[in-house]
Computed example of a mutant assay.
Amino acid sequence: MSAKKIWLFALLAGCISSLILTPLSVQAADPIKIGSVLRLSAGAEDGLPAKRGVELAVAEINKAGGINGRQIEVIFEDEKDSPTNAVNAVQKLINVDKVVAIIGPMTSGATLAAAPTANEAKMVMISPTATSPKVSGAGVFIYRGCSRIDKQAEALTDYVAKNYKPKTVGVLYSNEPYGKGCNDLFSKFFEKAGIKVVATESFMRGAKDFKAQLTNIKAAKPDILFIPGYYQETAPAASQARQLGMKQRIIGVYGDISPVYIELAGKAAEGHLVAGEHDPDYNTPKNKKFVESYQALVKSIPNEPNNVMFAALTYDMMNLVAEGIKKYGPTSEGIQKYLTEVQDHDGVTGQLCFNREHDVMKGEVSLFEVKKGKYVKVK
């Protein structure tokens, strides 16, 4: 055989060997893909912190060598506060990106809309923040990482009734699905706790002047003031209530939990009471490290919204998915098996497990009050 033929034979043999071996070697090094559907445009003040929580968890996992030598890759999609868009995003993550689990969506409407798609595909989908009771038992593969809104309402109204002993409440709510839902639900629990709703007013998202509504509520002389909505409006509303001479304690909801609420409301924030999911002072090594890492990240990004609670929720959910992969492999069925059996997972939002309806369990609903310019856990 001539030298030229020997060279050609060797080249062909090398190419064939490469064709045979490369897919296997690439497959071994391929990242494990996780999907995440979050509020990255509409509602980004909550969605971006949630994205940072996922990113922090993944960065820690990958820095430690990944899972069985494979890195985690997260594919983010924008929920856009649209159930239809959320369904399309979940379908893409399942069918195109071939993810093994999905963190999100965040809103209840989007979660409920996408649940049938995820269930049919046997895809684990964990919403970090969907609070609707309807999410409970939404499917074998559907999980929730936060407390239900009715549990929050019950805990908050019971605490208010026992500790402040008001007889009446005035309500100023955001006239969109979240605010309206909170008004309806919390009003029922206020009445159940013996606190009569004596005035109800509403405002639109983007509103800046609340004095007309507050004046009407002031005339009813309520003992406390309930303002459910998002901090962009609820904080200025609280400040304007004080300007009108209203001295009632102000009660709020999830949408208020942010350092920005305290900044915008100023002195009016003092005494503000809300239900929440994460205590920055939760005294565990894991939580201390997480809070330090998150705050350092926020400071490094210009104009980054700061909301450690939303970051903490997604950080925990991402780590639960990773633990499932470590134990049972990178399949949705394996992750689902792990989530069903996990007990006392060491999370930054508590010791976590899930009940039969796949709602997270971590003890009683936590309540936080603004004291000296900081949210402090009071229950």
Results as ranks from 00 to 15, higher is better:
Val378Asp: 11
Leu8Glu: 08
Gly170Gln: 05
Ala161Pro: 15
Leu112Asn: 03
Asn303Trp: 02
Lys218Pro: 01
Ala57Glu: 09
Val74Met: 05
Gly324Glu: 08
Asp256Gly: 05
Glu120Lys: 10
Ile224His: 09
Leu19Gly: 15
Ala29His: 12
Ile94Lys: 02
Ile301Trp: 08
Lys98Tyr: 05
Pro23Tyr: 01
Cys182Met: 13
Arg242Met: 03
Asn175Leu: 01
Ala44Thr: 10
Gly53Trp: 01
Arg148Gly: 12
Val197Tyr: 06
Ile103Gly: 02
Ser366Leu: 13
Leu112Gln: 02
Pro228Arg: 06
Pro222His: 04
Ser108Trp: 07
Gly137Gln: 02
Lys267Pro: 02
Pro177Phe: 01
Tyr315Ser: 10
Lys122Glu: 14
Gln240Met: 07
Asp256Ile: 00
Ile61Tyr: 04
Leu172Phe: 03
Leu8Gly: 12
Ala115Gly: 01
Ala101Cys: 11
Ala265Arg: 04
Gly252Pro: 09
Phe210Pro: 00
Lys162Phe: 07
Ile61Gln: 01
Ala237Cys: 06
Leu24Ala: 07
Glu120Leu: 12
Glu45Asn: 13
Val260Trp: 05
Leu172Thr: 00
Lys267Ile: 00
Lys267His: 04
Tyr328Arg: 15
Ile75Met: 06
Ala138Met: 02
Lys92Phe: 03
Ile94Trp: 04
Gln232Arg: 14
Lys327Arg: 13
Pro177Val: 03
Leu273Gln: 12
Arg356Ser: 14
Pro330Gln: 02
Pro105Lys: 00
Glu79Thr: 06
Pro330Glu: 05
Tyr282Ser: 09
Val90Leu: 00
Asp46Met: 15
Ile61Met: 05
Gly65Ala: 00
His278Arg: 07
Ala237Phe: 03
Ala241Met: 11
Leu112Lys: 08
Gln27Cys: 09
Ile16Asn: 08
Lys371Ile: 15
Asn283Met: 09
Lys247Cys: 11
Ile6Pro: 13
Gly109Asn: 09
Val140Met: 07
Ile20Met: 15
Ala311Cys: 10
Thr131Glu: 11
Phe368Leu: 14
Phe210Arg: 01
Ala3Asp: 11
Tyr143Gln: 05
Thr168Ser: 14
Gln336Trp: 12
Ile94Glu: 10
Met318Trp: 10
Lys377Ile: 08
Gly363Gln: 09
Arg356Ile: 08
Thr157Asp: 09
Leu367Trp: 11
Val169Ile: 10
Leu56Cys: 03
Ser147Gln: 15
Ser25Asn: 07
Asn306Glu: 14
Cys146Gly: 07
Gln240Leu: 10
Lys92Ile: 00
Glu341Ile: 15
Ala44Trp: 10
Lys337Trp: 03
Glu191Arg: 06
Ile195Cys: 09
Gly255Gln: 07
Tyr230Gly: 04
Asn119Lys: 03
Tyr159Asn: 12
Leu214His: 05
Glu277Ser: 13
Gln213Trp: 01
Cys146Ala: 14
Gln71Leu: 07
